[in-house]
């Protein structure tokens, strides 16, 4: 077709040289490494969930003990108004 296409085809042919032989154990090695990676991810995820759970439980316990929603008792420190 056009000029650049012919050049690219030439280089493409150059790239399609002799193929290296695939080692027979490459798939097994990659799978083993991927399995370890997967396992690591699962462990990290489990730890994350456990941490979240622990945080929720701790907050619940603290809230049950302190009861921060309870209003403080009314104070009587306001100076009395007299002399009107």
């Amino acid at each position: 077709m056009s000029f650049p296409d012919r050049k690219e085809t030439e280089v493409r042919r150059m790239l399609e040289g002799p193929h290296p032989a695939l080692p027979p154990d490459l798939a097994g090695r990659a799978a083993e490494r991927g399995r370890r990676m997967l396992h690591r991810h699962q462990v990290a995820r489990t730890i994350g969930w456990l941490l979240l759970l622990a945080a929720v439980v701790a907050f619940g316990v603290w809230a049950a003990i302190v009861e921060p929603w309870a209003a403080p008792p009314p104070t009587d420190t306001t100076p009395p108004l007299e002399g009107w």
Binding site: P23, A27, A30, A31, R33, R35, M37
Partner: peptide, 19 residues
């Protein structure tokens, strides 16, 4: 004939695909 680094690179990529 000598594709050691390429094999290492490909193994790392394939392991990620497996995961």
């Amino acid at each position: 004939g000598d594709t050691e680094a390429a094999e290492r690179l490909l193994t790392a990529a394939l392991a990620r695909t497996y995961a």
